[in-house]
Simulated scan of single mutants.
Amino acid sequence: MAETVHVLVAEDEPLAAMAIEDFLSRKGYRVTLAVDGLDAMERLQADPADLVITDLRMPRMDGHALIRELRRRDPGLPLVVMTGFLSLDGNADDITGDAWKPLEVLRKPVSPQMILDTLERLLARHAL
């Protein structure tokens, strides 16, 4: 990796966030943690990321609202959504339609390797 890729992780479960941070940092990524969508927006304002990983259910600003705001500001920003609560109903279409690309949805529990593989696939596609 010529330039260190900056990944922002918005996750309200501290152990999950720290595990992702540790794994991605060991793989050469620069990782910033945010506890919810509002925290993520503040951190992105101060230090833009190359890719955002977010949970959907978080306090203050949830993942749906965060994704809408990120898409409004930067439609091409790669996003990875991790959730244990995504059902195949109207809410799923809210974030998985073509308007939300590039975006990948991973159902929890998610292995760190699966996150890394998804992140690398999105970044490679985004670079084209």
Score class of each variant (00 low, 15 high):
residue 89 D to K: 05
residue 78 P to K: 08
residue 35 V to T: 13
residue 42 E to F: 05
residue 18 M to C: 08
residue 128 L to M: 13
residue 43 R to H: 09
residue 88 L to W: 07
residue 3 E to Q: 15
residue 82 M to C: 15
residue 23 F to R: 05
residue 56 L to Q: 12
residue 21 E to F: 08
residue 128 L to P: 09
residue 22 D to T: 15
residue 122 L to C: 03
residue 113 Q to G: 02
residue 18 M to A: 11
residue 44 L to N: 11
residue 122 L to E: 08
residue 66 L to S: 02
residue 25 S to L: 01
residue 88 L to S: 06
residue 61 M to S: 09
residue 72 R to S: 07
residue 93 D to Q: 13
residue 110 V to Q: 07
residue 81 V to D: 02
residue 120 E to L: 08
residue 65 A to R: 15
residue 111 S to W: 00
residue 124 A to W: 08
residue 110 V to F: 07
residue 16 A to W: 01
residue 124 A to I: 09
residue 108 K to C: 07
residue 84 G to Y: 11
residue 126 H to Y: 14
residue 16 A to E: 05
residue 66 L to Y: 04
residue 55 D to G: 15
residue 67 I to H: 06
residue 124 A to V: 11
residue 41 M to G: 00
residue 112 P to M: 09
residue 112 P to E: 10
residue 57 R to V: 12
residue 24 L to H: 07
residue 119 L to P: 00
residue 56 L to M: 15
residue 49 A to P: 04
residue 31 V to S: 00
residue 39 D to G: 04
residue 9 V to W: 02
residue 1 M to R: 14
residue 53 I to A: 12
residue 115 I to S: 02
residue 104 E to K: 14
residue 30 R to F: 00
residue 34 A to I: 05
residue 111 S to Y: 00
residue 19 A to Q: 07
residue 15 L to D: 12
residue 118 T to Q: 11
residue 30 R to L: 02
residue 44 L to P: 06
residue 53 I to E: 07
residue 17 A to K: 04
residue 110 V to R: 10
residue 83 T to H: 14
residue 41 M to E: 09
residue 27 K to V: 00
residue 73 R to M: 04
residue 128 L to K: 12
residue 13 E to S: 10
residue 31 V to A: 03
residue 122 L to V: 03
residue 29 Y to I: 09
residue 39 D to K: 06
residue 62 D to T: 07
residue 88 L to G: 01
residue 34 A to L: 06
residue 32 T to F: 06
residue 124 A to K: 14
residue 22 D to S: 15
residue 40 A to F: 11
residue 107 R to G: 07
residue 47 D to P: 04
residue 68 R to A: 14
residue 28 G to H: 08
residue 58 M to D: 02
residue 122 L to N: 06
residue 28 G to N: 07
residue 12 D to G: 10
residue 93 D to R: 13
residue 14 P to W: 11
residue 6 H to D: 04
residue 7 V to F: 08
residue 113 Q to E: 11
residue 56 L to V: 08
residue 33 L to W: 05
residue 100 W to G: 08
residue 26 R to E: 09
residue 54 T to H: 11
residue 97 G to W: 05
residue 47 D to C: 12
residue 115 I to A: 02
residue 127 A to S: 14
residue 47 D to M: 13
residue 112 P to F: 02
residue 99 A to Y: 10
residue 36 D to G: 00
residue 78 P to D: 03
residue 34 A to E: 02
residue 47 D to S: 15
residue 2 A to L: 12
residue 18 M to P: 00
residue 119 L to E: 00
residue 88 L to Q: 10
residue 41 M to C: 06
residue 114 M to G: 04
residue 95 I to R: 06
residue 64 H to S: 04
residue 79 L to R: 10
residue 107 R to M: 14
residue 70 L to Y: 04
residue 57 R to N: 12
residue 39 D to F: 05
residue 88 L to T: 05
residue 51 L to D: 09
residue 53 I to P: 03
residue 85 F to C: 10
residue 95 I to M: 08
residue 91 N to E: 15
residue 99 A to K: 15
residue 43 R to D: 01
residue 33 L to V: 04
residue 17 A to W: 03
residue 66 L to E: 02
residue 108 K to Q: 10
residue 12 D to H: 11
residue 9 V to C: 05
residue 6 H to M: 06
residue 84 G to H: 11
residue 91 N to R: 15
residue 94 D to M: 13
residue 89 D to F: 01
residue 41 M to K: 06
residue 99 A to P: 01
residue 31 V to N: 01
residue 70 L to Q: 08
residue 98 D to M: 13
residue 52 V to I: 07
residue 110 V to P: 05
residue 76 G to D: 12
residue 28 G to F: 01
residue 92 A to H: 11
residue 106 L to M: 02
residue 89 D to H: 01
residue 64 H to A: 08
